[in-house]
């Protein structure tokens, strides 16, 4: 039992990292008032390009950059649709999501089923060798720690900087923000691109670090869970991170419960992240008053003013 628990806790941080990156990025886009539902497709594109570039160049760093950039380019198309063409944000998100899945399958076609070496874990001499705590906290690759570090950074940007204030203003009331001279479309473009880059990094971590392989359909709903995590965390970075780690643990339960030899159908375990998402979503949405306090007021609404 202790072994199972250590297995889940030590794997949890790594398993959660792809979703954490994607959800943090999506939360920034949403706080600027743009609902980008294409996270799944952007993650897939990031995963495929990261895998291709890391395999060909032998550099994980280049892989991560390629993944982030590819997904950011995809989010640029999304931004053009919703900010310039005033397309419905839900429809545009679905369109880019499908396009991203197609692009990922195209880019990854040559690498279908291939594996890659994992990036080195940043072992800290002494700490990493500690029993229990060592494998749980101190034996991960750099991206896992970067993800953890980004949580307070994003929180601080929103609460302590002018940029964060501008983003929130644009997300709450774009007309008022425009009236005091804030470049509404510019801010939204920046936030969407950031969200895309982060989704790409998340996908990249999935393909070149966590699973260390590429297969079509690798993302398997994680992008949608990331979108749900933003709601669970009521758009606040620390809560989003908490949610991501809980879901990381749930995704590992499938493996460990099978290891324990319990007679639960494997399909029920595979479906459990989705079932949990539905239940949590229902529970959270129940308190609409509280959600309304944190939901960006202009979320999903196009801004038609001159900016």
């Amino acid at each position: 039992m202790t072994a199972t628990l250590v297995f889940i806790l030590s794997g949890m941080l790594a398993a959660a990292t792809p979703m954490l990156f994607a959800a943090l990025g999506e939360s920034v886009a949403e706080r600027s008032g743009v609902l980008n539902l294409s996270v799944e497709g952007m993650m897939a594109t990031g995963a495929a390009f990261a895998f291709a570039v890391a395999t060909l160049s032998g550099s994980h760093t280049l892989g991560f950059l390629a993944g982030g950039t590819a997904a950011a380019l995809l989010s640029l198309v999304f931004a053009a649709l919703v900010l310039v063409f005033h397309a419905n944000q839900v429809a545009a998100g679905l369109a880019i999501g499908v396009l991203g899945l197609g692009v990922s399958a195209f880019a990854g076609n040559r690498f279908e089923g291939a594996a890659i070496a994992k990036p080195p874990s940043l072992d800290i001499p002494g700490l990493s060798d500690l029993p229990v705590v060592g494998p749980i906290l101190f034996s991960h690759d750099a991206m896992v720690y970067l993800g953890i570090l980004l949580v307070p950074v994003v929180a601080l940007v929103f609460t302590r900087t002018k940029l964060g204030l501008s983003i929130r203003a644009v997300g709450e009331n774009p007309e008022a923000a425009r009236a005091i001279g804030t470049p509404v479309l510019g801010i939204r473009l920046g936030c969407v691109l950031f969200g895309g880059f982060m989704a790409g990094l998340g996908g990249a971590h999935l393909s070149i670090a966590y699973t260390a392989l590429w297969a079509e359909g690798l993302v398997a709903g994680r992008g949608w869970i990331a979108v749900a995590l933003v709601v669970f965390g009521s758009w606040l970075p620390f809560r989003i991170a908490l949610g991501a780690y809980v879901f990381g643990a749930i995704s590992l339960m499938e493996l460990s419960v099978q290891g324990l030899g319990l007679a639960i159908p494997s399909q029920l375990l595979s479906a459990s992240p989705y079932i949990v998402t539905i239940l949590v979503l229902a529970a959270i949405s129940r308190d609409q008053t509280r959600l309304r306090l944190t939901r960006p007021l202009s979320l999903g609404k196009p801004f038609r003013g001159q900016a």
């Binding site: 839900v90 949608w224 979108v227 749900a228 709601v231 079932i275 539905i278 979503l281 229902a282």
Partner: peptide
Amino acid sequence: FGASEILTTFM
């Protein structure tokens, strides 16, 4: 409950 049908239908 007011749960977004976009997410629930997908899940």
